[in-house]
C-alpha cells in the first residue's frame, strides 16, 4: 500500500496539471518537468485558489498558462515582473509568480526585473536558464557559457566581443528586498526533490510577506544545443553546473527595515 502511494506520487499526474494529450515541449526538454514540479508545489502549499502565474515570452509562454490549472497569463517579452507587480499590489492576498526564460528575464527584461527587486516586491520568480533563446532557434542568451556554439555565436561565445555569462541567482541574492535565491536543476530525481524544496521556500517567503523569492533552473534544450537528450544531461552536469553552481545564495527570515527613516 505504501509502495503504491509512493508510485502514485512519482508517476501519477499532479491534480493541477491540465491533461493535454500531446507534449508542448521538445523531447528531452526540462520545461515539462518544471511544470510538474510547480503543480506539485502549488498543490502541496494549498495555494491554488489564490495563485496567479505570469509567463514570459519564450517556450514557457503558451504551455505554462495552459498546463498549470491556476489563474495565469502570458506576458509580452520581459514584462512579466511589471505586470505581476500591479496584480500583487491590487490583490495582496494572491500568490503571484512569474516564469521567465533567460532571454526574457536576463536580456530584454533585465531592467524590468531588477527594478522589481529594487522596489522590494513580494513576488516569486521561476527563472529558466537553458543557455540560449529556445523559441527563436538557439541564439546566444545572456546565460550562454563561454565557448558554447549558438546560431549567433557560430564559433562559440567569445567573451571579448559578447561579454560574460549572467549569474542571475547570485545577482538576485545581492538585492536587499530578496528573501530567497537559489539555483537548481531537475536532471536527476535527487535534484528534482531539492528543487521542489527551493521553490516551496521561494513561495513561502511571499506567503509570509517577507520578500522576493527567486529560483533559477538549469534546463536542457536538446534541439538548440544540438545534442541528444542524454548528451544534454552530461553537458548540463559538467559544463553548465561548472559555470552555474547549484545551491542557495540567500535565505532570509526577515528583511530588516531601517528604523528611523524620516
Amino acid at each position: 500500500m505504501k509502495g503504491e502511494a509512493a508510485k502514485e506520487k512519482i508517476y501519477g499526474t499532479p491534480k493541477l496539471r491540465v491533461p493535454i494529450p500531446f507534449s508542448m515541449f521538445c523531447p528531452g526538454c526540462h520545461y515539462g518537468i518544471i511544470v510538474r514540479l510547480l503543480c506539485e508545489v502549488i498543490e502541496e502549499l494549498g495555494i491554488e485558489g489564490r495563485a496567479i502565474g505570469l509567463a514570459g515570452v519564450g517556450c514557457s509562454f503558451g504551455p505554462f498558462p495552459m498546463l498549470i490549472d491556476v489563474d495565469f497569463t502570458a506576458c509580452p517579452h520581459g514584462r512579466a515582473p511589471a505586470m505581476a507587480t500591479a496584480i500583487k499590489r491590487i490583490h495582496p492576498e494572491a500568490i503571484v509568480f512569474t516564469v521567465q526564460g533567460d532571454g526574457d528575464l536576463g536580456a530584454i527584461g533585465l531592467g524590468c526585473f531588477m527594478n522589481t527587486l529594487l522596489r522590494g516586491e513580494k513576488l516569486t520568480t521561476i527563472f529558466l536558464n537553458n543557455a540560449c533563446y529556445g523559441t527563436t532557434g538557439g541564439q546566444m542568451a545572456p546565460t550562454t557559457p563561454w565557448g558554447m556554439r549558438t546560431t549567433t555565436t557560430p564559433k562559440g561565445r567569445d567573451p571579448s566581443t559578447t561579454g560574460f555569462p549572467l549569474h542571475a541567482a547570485e545577482l538576485t541574492a545581492t538585492m536587499k528586498g530578496v528573501a530567497y535565491s537559489a539555483r537548481c536543476s531537475v536532471h536527476t530525481a535527487a535534484n528534482f526533490q531539492r528543487a521542489k524544496k527551493a521553490v516551496k521556500m521561494a513561495f513561502q517567503k511571499q506567503m509570509d510577506g517577507i520578500g522576493y523569492g527567486f529560483v533559477e533552473f538549469l534546463s536542457a534544450c536538446p534541439p538548440n544545443w544540438g545534442m541528444t537528450p542524454v548528451d544534454c544531461l552530461k553537458f548540463l552536469s559538467e559544463r553548465m553546473i561548472a559555470e552555474y553552481p547549484l545551491g542557495e545564495f540567500k535565505n532570509a527570515n526577515a528583511i530588516e527595515l531601517p528604523g528611523e527613516w524620516m
Binding site: 511589471a82 505586470m83 505581476a84 507587480t85 500591479a86 496584480i87 499590489r89 524590468c112
Partner: peptide
C-alpha cells in the same frame, strides 16, 4: 515601459 505593463497587469487584475 514598466508603467504601461503595470497598467496591463492591473487591468487584468
Amino acid at each position: 515601459t514598466a508603467s504601461v505593463y503595470m497598467v496591463y497587469g492591473g487591468a487584468l487584475a
